[in-house]
């Protein structure tokens, strides 16, 4: 500090240099909460499942894994029961798979279609803005409101009994389909926007029609993004509970649905019903169901995220 003017500056370098790492560490810890929560969550649920009579010490990984596997296998094959020793999720798992198929059949074509309309067909202007704002808002509507919609529209059809679907798989599938529609539309739109316009022009300049360009060039390039969004949407549908409670997925169904027009229950609904029971045995059953659900959803999401990271930068220019 030789120059006189310098004495007017007080850089407090030590404090400032110290504040940085402290703040950085706080930020890092905050980020870790997510990872910590995920491990606590899975850990405590696995611990609950294993805390049944005849446990092995926690470090006996092989026996514990075998126990866990046997327990989950039993849950998958048994149906709902008053007796915890006989209770399982078979009906709910089958119901959820039915829902998955129905939701996919409805929401994937409609969602991709709406996105293609918005990005490739709709002229910029009022119509497009209205639909776009509408989809953004639909994405923020609480899932239980979709349940109310499904209840009034599909289950009851405003009291018109001839049109009403009743508490059937159709009603549940359509309700969940509407619920994940915005997810699929928004993801598809983002994927379509990454397709370079030079590609569209090249195809048009060869004398291709609008639809030929989209079918042969735009959709294939956007496919990974669309796939990611679709899987994320479907996994959201599988995990939803509240709307299904509204549209009549009852917990006390004891036989497999015979078709989409039949009554049903779903895995998360059964988990909810077991979790509500005060006894610890049922709590263990619920934990087992959650394990099945979480493993299913996490693997779906992991596949989706993998697809996106793998293909996100494959086409440029």
């Amino acid at each position: 500090m030789s120059r006189p003017a310098s004495s007017l500056y007080e850089p407090h370098r030590r404090i400032r240099v110290l504040a940085g790492p402290v703040f950085g560490a706080a930020c890092f810890l905050a980020t870790l909460t997510g990872v910590v929560v995920l491990s606590v969550l899975l850990g405590s649920i696995i611990a609950t499942v294993l805390h049944r009579p005849g446990v092995h010490p926690w470090y006996d990984v092989a026996s514990n894994t075998r126990d866990l596997y046997e327990f989950l296998k039993a849950l998958v094959t048994r149906v709902r029961s008053r007796d915890p020793a006989l209770a399982g999720f078979r009906i709910g798992i089958v119901g959820s798979l039915w829902l998955l198929v129905l939701v996919a059949v409805f929401a994937i074509p409609v969602g991709i279609g709406a996105a293609v309309f918005l990005e490739e067909y709709a002229p910029p202007g009022r119509l497009r803005r209205v639909i776009q704002t509408n989809i953004a808002n639909l994405a923020g509507v609480p899932s239980i409101v979709y349940g109310i919609l499904g209840l009034a529209l599909f289950v009851r059809a405003f009291g018109l009994n001839r049109l009403a679907l009743g508490p059937t798989l159709w009603a549940g599938g359509l309700t969940l389909g509407l619920l994940i529609l915005p997810v699929i539309v928004i993801a598809t739109q983002e994927a379509l926007r990454t397709v370079p316009s030079s590609l569209r022009q090249a195809a048009l300049a060869l004398g291709a029609t609008h639809w030929q360009v989209i079918r042969d060039h735009v959709l294939p390039v956007a496919l990974p993004g669309i796939l990611t969004g679709t899987i994320l949407g479907l996994s959201r549908a599988i995990g939803e509970t509240a709307p299904l409670l509204m549209v009549g997925a009852a917990g006390s169904i004891l036989r497999l649905p015979r078709g989409p027009g039949d009554r049903y229950t779903a895995l998360p609904v059964e988990i909810y019903n077991y979790a509500k029971e005060p006894s610890a045995e049922f709590s263990t059953i619920a934990a087992g169901g959650i394990l099945i659900l979480v493993v299913l959803l996490l693997s779906m999401n992991a596949v989706a995220i993998f697809i996106r990271n793998r293909y996100s930068r494959s086409v440029r220019g």
């Binding site: 980020t31 649920i45 996994s235 599988i238 995990g239 509970t241 988990i271 959650i290 999401n301």
Partner: peptide, 24 residues
């Protein structure tokens, strides 16, 4: 690594969190 991990966390159904409240 962390960004996808956070996204995975966002994919956990809410009923699981409810159960965690009761359990833990």
């Amino acid at each position: 690594v962390l960004k996808p991990a956070l996204e995975l966390l966002a994919g956990i159904p809410t009923i699981v969190y409810g159960y965690l409240a009761l359990l833990l």
